[in-house]
Amino acid sequence: MKVGLFVPCYVDMFHPETGIATLELLERFGLSVEYPVDQTCCGQPMTNTGCEREAAKTEELFVRNFGKYDYIVTPSGSCTNQVRNNMTAIEQTDAVKHVRSRTYELVEFLHDVLKVDAFPWAEFPHRVALHNNCNTLRNLRIASMSERREEPFSKPKALLGMVKGIEFADLTRPDECCGFGGTFSVFEEGVSAKMGQDKVTDQLKSGAEYVTSSDSSCMMHQEGCARRMGANLKYIHIAQILNGARA
């Protein structure tokens, strides 16, 4: 199984440790993982804003970089959603279709493809609040959502549950969007920041020491709000916890 690692632009730039943890974690399962060094982005900022034409060249580059892999894995559900469900600015060739159907968010890849049942190296004796990115939750269906009448399930919780010592903190509005929303965070800054502050307040009330998520983008926004608010909360990507980060 040949795996291509996609490290989204903002992870590359601001959270390299998330990329490193993802790579190391996948290697722990004996996979041959490659990171094509000419990668940039999935095209989401443009598509998200409605500028599909402007996304075309970035999408083409993505397919050129990742066409040769059996699976493309990335520590971002939001980018996975873009590739899988919205990469439509370019002609849908076989290569494009292959890349779109083979791109997985890290948690679903571990849970659904590798069917991992243990992380013997992982231990995280802390109180942790879980945040699901909205694309990851409602479009990739990584967990059941409170809007629907369905059997409760959560792939990230199932994986985190295998980590020694971890304790979950419950939020009062677990599925409420944190207000990042991609370019929304810049274009509609006021509402975005207010939603972020409310999310941080909920996390504080839950008694969490850490917040974790399979998406760095939401956490970058939440962490920015938390720091400005002087809130004592730490943000860590799920890949780091599963890879055995100690704190």
């Binding site: 490290v7 992870v11 590359d12 730039m13 601001f14 959270h15 390299p16 440790e17 990329g19 490193i20 790579l23 990171y35 060094v37 965070s185 810049v186 274009f187 800054e189 920041a193 972020g196 502050q197 970058m220 926004h221 962490e223 920015g224 709000c225 720091r227 400005r228």
Partner: peptide, 22 residues
């Protein structure tokens, strides 16, 4: 700079993932 009005800007790390990987 609408990001920074009510949120802190993320610190830029010493190197990008790409640099680390290379």
């Amino acid at each position: 700079n609408t990001w920074g009005r009510k949120r802190d800007i993320p610190e830029t790390p010493k190197q990008t993932f790409n640099e680390w990987y290379r």
